[in-house]
Structures are given as C-alpha cells and as structure tokens.
Design a binder for these strands. Structure first.
Lengths: 177, 177
DNA sequence: TTTACTGTACCGGCTGGACGGTCTTGTCAA
DNA sequence: TTGACAAGACCGTCCAGCCGGTACAGTAAA
C-alpha cells in the first residue's frame, strides 16, 4: 500500500506527541511511534535516523509552531503589545485540558540538552519583551506567571479552576498594561 | 529491634536524587541508585520493594521536607504572611544553580500519576493562601510566578540572571503586600 | 552458659524481557 | 531507474524484579 503521498515527517512528529501524551512519556519508543503514525519502523528510521533526531525534530517543530502562533497574535491585534499577545496565546494553550507537550519529558530523560534551544528561545523572547517596557519588575512577574501557567499545564495540574485561570489572565493583562 | 546501620532509607533517597541530577533523569536505575547509596541492589529492594515505591518515597520525602521548611519560615518570621514565606523559601530554593528535583522527570516517565500528591499539596497550599488575602488576583499572579520560578529551576533554565531574579522576588513581595 | 531457633537487614548473581539501532530485501510511484 | 518507504529479522544492551544466601541480634529453653 503506497497511499500516503503526504508528508510523513509531520505525521510521525504528531504521532510521537500523541504517544507521549496518551501512553505516558516513558512509553515513547520508536516502535510505538511508528505504529501510531501508520508507518513501519524502517520508514520512521528513514525520516529520523535516530531517536535523538526525532526528539530534535519535536523541539524544532514545537518552537516554530509557537513562534508562528505568537507572530500571528502580535500582528493580528495590531497595536497591542507582544506581552499581551504572549499572555493570551498562553492562556488559550492552557485552556486545553490535555498537555500537548508531554514528549518534553521523554526528551529530558533522553538527554537534558534537548531543552537548550527552548531555553534560548525563551531568553530571546524575554529580551524582546524587555524592549517593549520600562517596568522590568512587572514584566518579570508576568513572564514568570505565564511560565508557571504553562508549567502547570505541562504537568497536567488541574490545580486552578477555570474561573481562577480567567482571573489570573485578566490580572496579568492589567499588569502588562 | 535492630536499628539499620545508618538510616538506609534516607541514604537511598538522597542517592536517587543525586543520580537523577548528575547522570540525568533517564539514568535513574536501581543499580545506579544502590551503588551510589553504598548499598547492594538487594538492600535497596529490601527498603523499596519496587521502583515505584522508591519514586513514591521520593515524592513523600520531598513534600514533607517542603512542608517543614515552609512551616519553619512562616513561624520564624512570626507575623509575616505565609505567602511571603513561600516566596522567600522558593527564592532560596531557586538560588541553588542545580535543580534538586530532577528525579521528578524519572517519576513522570515511570508513571505520571506519581505527581498526584504534589498537585494535591499545591492545591492545599493555594487554599491556605486564599484564606490569607482578599485580593485573589494578586495571589494568583504571585502563586503562578513562583510556580514559574520553580519550574525554570527544575528545567535548569538559566533564562534569568541573578539580578532579574532578585528584582522578581522583590516585585512579588511588594504585590503580596 | 550453651545451644537452637527466629526475624531482620542486607548481599549479589541471575534472567526474562523490552528496547534501540542496524541491516536486508522488497515494493511502488514518479 | 531511483527515491521513499514497507516489513521485519537480528543483535547488543540494559534493567527490574526475584531468589538463594549471609551475618547477626534477640530470645528462650535446656
């Protein structure tokens, strides 16, 4: 069967994220991913010659998706600050009950260095936000609070209720000005 | 009643945390822990009949340590709010360059449910803080910002500089009132 | 006091199974 | 023909859990 002329890479990346989310980050094996993607192990290894490359692909696609989404938000609302766009984007991301990035735990278990690009990205984003305001203290509070929100979502923590999250977001937007 | 040579349980727990931190969360194997603790594998399995029990032990000791530290801070400074104590405690925890809880990633990989007690603890702490203030918005911002700080430390993110962290903490204390 | 028994605390080798990565051979569409 | 996989066998490694020992402290009868 040679049906899927479609891009296998993306299917595989999506499958990997699905497996990590549903079967747990510890169950992210090449076979599981291949099976989930409707691809043979050989086919997977053709696209990603090693597991490390797969993880790297996950990180890269995550980052590029995020950047695209942020840019869209920032320009869409025109004159609102990037910080506001970041807050809203993160709020929407965290609305989804299921964490979409459990694969990150697999990546860390494989090698903590896989997070390096993510750290760099965050620092870069922070620098960009710094250029937007002169109230560094407020920015730090907002930036870290968003980080906390994303972290809770990642850990699948239902610590906050829907209402609390909404109040949090509106408070952040107020601080952000 | 025979007393264990030295409290093996605690030695093992400390060794497990060390291994996860130094060799990476993916390298937390029973043998590595046993060797690090100066205990044979059999001895480890005697104290923790299964890897899951070891993880559970890590979570429990982490939580009880944290609770003790928080209580100490809260009473030590007498009349200051629990939120302030929580902020300061977290700031000090995050001052240490190396994350002390990398084992959490191993636990998640093993089974995400290991985090359930931690979630419950956090919710409980949040409820307690809620009783202390009537400005829920500010509390949420502080609580989540602390969460973000702890998360960054856990991920070993050197995204913030020393000065930025200090400014963050003082901003949080100001918001906390 | 000696001997025999019991439970505790720990040792360390073993194994069955899973997993990652490689390789070979085949297939089908462009 | 060639590029993009399919299908899966194979191998080396690793690891959790199990099991048979060992050392020793306490107990208690003889």
């Amino acid at each position: 069967m040679k049906v899927p002329r479609a891009n296998s890479r993306e299917k595989i990346l999506a499958a990997a994220a699905d497996v990590a989310r549903e079967a747990g980050p510890g169950s992210l094996s090449l076979e599981a991913v291949a099976s989930r993607a409707g691809v043979s192990k050989g086919g997977l290894l053709y696209n990603f010659p090693t597991k490390a490359k797969l993880m790297q692909g996950l990180v890269e696609s995550y980052l590029s998706d995020f950047q695209k989404a942020l840019e869209a938000r920032a320009t869409e609302a025109g004159h609102e600050s990037v910080l506001s766009a970041y807050i809203k984007l993160s709020a929407d991301d965290c609305e989804r009950p299921k964490p979409s990035a459990s694969w990150m735990f697999s990546a860390i278990a494989e090698d903590p260095d896989f997070l390096t690009p993510i750290k760099a990205f965050k620092r870069q984003l922070f620098e960009r936000l710094k250029g937007e305001t002169d109230d560094l203290g407020s920015l730090l509070v907002c930036f870290l609070a968003i980080e906390g929100m994303r972290s809770m979502n990642l850990f699948d923590s239902d610590v906050l209720s829907e209402d609390e999250r909404k109040l949090l977001v509106s408070s952040l937007l107020k601080i952000a000005g």
